[in-house]
Design a protein around this nucleic acid. Sequence first.
DNA 1: TCCGCTACCTGTAGAGCGGTAGGTTTTGTT
DNA 2: AACAAAACCTACCGCTCTACAGGTAGCGGA
Lengths: 193, 193
Amino acid sequence: MPYGDGMNARVRSEERRAEIVGAALEVIAERGYRGASLAAVAERVGLTQQGLLHYFPTKDALLVAVLQERDRWDAVPDTRWRIDLLASLVEYNAMRPAIIQTFSALLGESVTEGHPARAYFTERYAQVRENMTAVLRAEYGDRLPNGLTPERTAPLLIAVMDGLQYQWLLDPESVDMPGAFRDFLRLLGEPVE
Amino acid sequence: MPYGDGMNARVRSEERRAEIVGAALEVIAERGYRGASLAAVAERVGLTQQGLLHYFPTKDALLVAVLQERDRWDAVPDTRWRIDLLASLVEYNAMRPAIIQTFSALLGESVTEGHPARAYFTERYAQVRENMTAVLRAEYGDRLPNGLTPERTAPLLIAVMDGLQYQWLLDPESVDMPGAFRDFLRLLGEPVE
DNA sequence: TCCGCTACCTGTAGAGCGGTAGGTTTTGTT
DNA sequence: AACAAAACCTACCGCTCTACAGGTAGCGGA
């Protein structure tokens, strides 16, 4: 099957890489990063393991691409985040267990020593906390109805999202993730507009 | 007339096993379960890998022992759990990062397919949710000040504890885990006695 | 048409893994 | 003293893993 389908080499290469990253997401969801073998990822896109290494020279390089993909994915460009959009996000996540599982598994692994994703998650959470603080401040002002500051509420908000994900992944029947998250938002109180 | 003194073979064997389980906890904290090799655990207690296999015939058997150890550890026998005791527990946890890291890493891995700890965590969380529901009901009655039921609050409580642990493990300087947890308890409102 | 580059491949090195087989020393019981 | 069992050991098997080396085939540009 020749490549003459109207696309140039650069585009085809980029597409192949994206395909590989997608397969890596799946395999990591199933086996974690340490458990994910390059061969398993390669097989899923119809390559040999060595063929895959042509696109990503090391396993870590592939992980980096996976993490960048995530960054690109939930970088909502200019949208003014609002709290109720978060609820929708959680609802959306509940329909994409694979992605949630990938990053929940990675987060768990990342707390171990010398894990290649550790720095990524550390920085990411610092950034998300800042981000959420800003969102909360925009919505509530400097004090929430219950007296907490946005700075102190942000870590709780994030913790609830992550923690619910684990409970939900382990037992989706028993845990209504979006519902529980909305409950938490009610706990924060109604913004006084 | 079996074992006459206080230091018989059975006791020594049990001590050795406990020693091994302790070492396994450490290694899992550092590398996760999949990344933890029997040889690394064995070395830590001055054994060869095969010597370790004399006590635990398979790697999974060792994991089972680790999980049982945890169950034994936080099975507070008859103490009536109370909410403020939870805050103390979180404070105590903040002084034992190793144990937290072990089980955070295991929880993360456990969501992957066919992980040997998956069933354990699924059951454990179901049980803990029940437990927390009872605690909340004892403290607040059938309705919390904010209108939520104990059943719906329990998953949130657990989610906050777990989620905060990840943030804290990744960046202890930036996250005041016990403080944040107390903030969450304030969010629940004061019990009306 | 030639040439270089991309996109793969086969082969293999080198290390680490869990687990088995079977031996030997140590220990405790009789 | 005799014996059995527990507590280890050495040796090794078969597998899997990442990564390197080096080759080949086809495409695109000059």
